[in-house]
Write a protein that binds this DNA or RNA. Structure first.
Lengths: 341, 341
DNA sequence: CTGTTAGCGCATTCAA
DNA sequence: TTGAATGCGCTAACAG
């Protein structure tokens, strides 16, 4: 509650001196006053008025963390284990760096621009922005921005992105499935935005096929509804397809787990009759039985990287590697079986 | 980027008039200027400087959402499905009400006091605060506060709390287990803070025992480590206890699911040889096989309630029911079996 | 209906 | 080593 002016009065010095003490400009203050001002600062529980600082510096200590949800879907995306882990990691890093986190979800870019202008955000972390929006935002923002999981149209701009090596993930997964004798594999994602993480993974899958001089038709990529009942229908159709799929590759552990259970309840053995794979390697992958063969990504590390990059940009540093691509690694468990020749 | 003053200049009116237009005080502005000012506001993309507003009004449009983590544990608590769901719900409500959300985790109360003072928070939602801290915070804050899942020592103060009927949850669960013939039941939580949600649930369990003129010894309440390996050890000890427990009641679906899997991997049938129950009814409960008999709570609803209460308090309203206690409901699935007489 | 003015608390420049 | 003065953009009380 105490202001600089009040502290100055109590200590019998000028506001400037108090400000100097606060900002550690100790060279400009005599040891005795330094001590006295410091004790008053502590006893009066001085807390800077961030509004005044924002006004004076025209920048706040707030970092905006914005998650994009799909247009016309007002539900939260925070239930996803990946997003909650990454948010947890980001919150911690921001806090430890002495900044504050403003959490927001939106589905259109003007929202972001307004947010930055209103709050004079010191930096911005944007999660799951589509390529087109990223371009617009990058051009209109002067604030440092780091994207997470954004796939850009290659328009020559330099983006700061914490990406995942999705293509490699799809490749390794598929290579493994192919090595186990699978040839009819269906791929599932709940979004088919192109370019997007799911389509990148599918590209990786194509590469694995190509290495064996095989081709992976585009219609093997299926969009999964976000509605439970719709998904159940989809699973049902798969099991009667002819010739049958020998493997179902889901780009999310949760849906993979759901499919495993769907199959088991109808007597379709996993991996006996159909193999299933996931993506992310979160709690779900380890909870279902058989445990999922999946692609691991380190959500914590990625949140950490994003904040580290952003802080560097905020300090005005130029990053050697503007964009990082986190590695993935295949986790082989029990949900994939060998297809007899 | 444009300020009120700049807009005023362009429109050829005074800043006050522009402010009147912004604040909808249309009665004080002639239709023609209203129109002109409005068009300038739009074309110049006026965005209020929140710092200036904070300074002038000495209150911000920010609602602080603070999650308490245990002292000396610096990990994130956001991975928990309950916390991510409730945060998702809160974010949405705050945004739709025209406020902004500052997300923070901490383990000591002075942090909160500083946060409020620095940012002139309009309101505060505190999740999982311990009883003692709640008292301190309630006394030292003038800002409206709503607690979520806080169990207070009864010190006569009036708290605004969005609680869960934990006692009833423990009661219903236990009553059901008793009705299925179980008598040796062990209860598990990862925190034994008293008073706390877990101990409340255990109290409910005692009540169910008492109704049958049975007694539930305190040592049936066990603390589960947050470390995976430690927990595995605990599960191991249980299965060799003599006489054996016929039911294990976990106060979290995740641990329950973990225990189910532990048992299955060692050939201990669930619910054949031991029954298992969870709490919360989240994704884990439905994913594991057998699906968990558990106690349902509506995280979304509770987030919504918390924000609704807070907004009312911020408007200066007095709430008829300062504290709400959300109902729980028993979900009977397949993880509990009948004990032969 | 419209304009003027005095703060809000801090950073920062300049003066002593 | 310390102090005084100005301005950041807005609110709100007041004057016209």
């Amino acid at each position: 509650m105490a202001t600089i002016k009040q502290i100055a009065e109590k200590a019998g010095v000028s506001p400037t001196t108090v400000a100097n003490v606060i900002h550690g400009r100790t060279a400009k203050v005599s040891p005795s006053t330094l001590e006295r001002v410091r004790s008053f600062l502590a006893s009066e529980k001085y807390a800077p008025n961030m509004g005044a600082i924002m006004l004076a510096r025209s920048s706040s200590r707030i970092i905006g963390v914005v998650i994009f949800r799909e247009p016309r879907r007002n539900e939260t995306v925070l239930e996803d284990p990946f997003s909650s882990m990454i948010i947890g990691a980001i919150e911690r890093e921001i806090r430890e760096a002495g900044y504050y986190m403003m959490l927001h979800t939106t589905d259109h870019e003007e929202d972001i621009l307004r947010l930055v202008a209103k709050w004079k955000l010191a930096g911005l972390i944007l999660i799951w922005v589509t390529g087109e929006m990223a371009g617009i935002l990058q051009r209109s923002l002067e604030t440092p921005v780091v994207f997470i999981d954004c796939i850009f149209d290659d328009d020559g701009q330099e983006y700061h992105n914490v990406a995942l090596d999705d293509e490699q993930g799809g490749y390794e997964l598929t290579k493994y499935l192919l090595s186990m004798g699978h040839r009819r594999i269906a791929y599932f994602a709940d979004s088919g935005t192109w370019p997007g993480t799911a389509t990148m993974r599918f590209e990786g899958a194509k590469r694995a096929y190509a290495e064996l001089a095989l081709s992976l038709p585009d219609d093997r990529f299926k969009i999964l509804s976000k509605d439970y009942d719709e998904r159940q229908k989809t699973y049902g159709q798969l099991t009667v397809s002819d010739p049958p799929y020998t493997a179902l590759a889901f780009f999310s552990d949760y849906y993979a787990a759901e499919a495993v259970i769907y199959c088991q309840e109808r007597g379709i053995e996993v991996p006996g009759r159909v193999s299933v794979t996931g993506f992310d390697d979160n709690l779900f992958a380890r909870l279902v039985r058989p445990r999922l063969t999946t692609v691991y990504q380190d959500a914590f590390l990625r949140g950490h990287q994003a904040v580290t990059m952003l802080l560097a940009l905020m300090r005005g540093e130029t990053l050697e590697t503007p964009s990082v691509r986190s590695p993935v690694s295949l986790k082989i468990r029990e949900s994939v079986g060998r297809v007899p020749e």
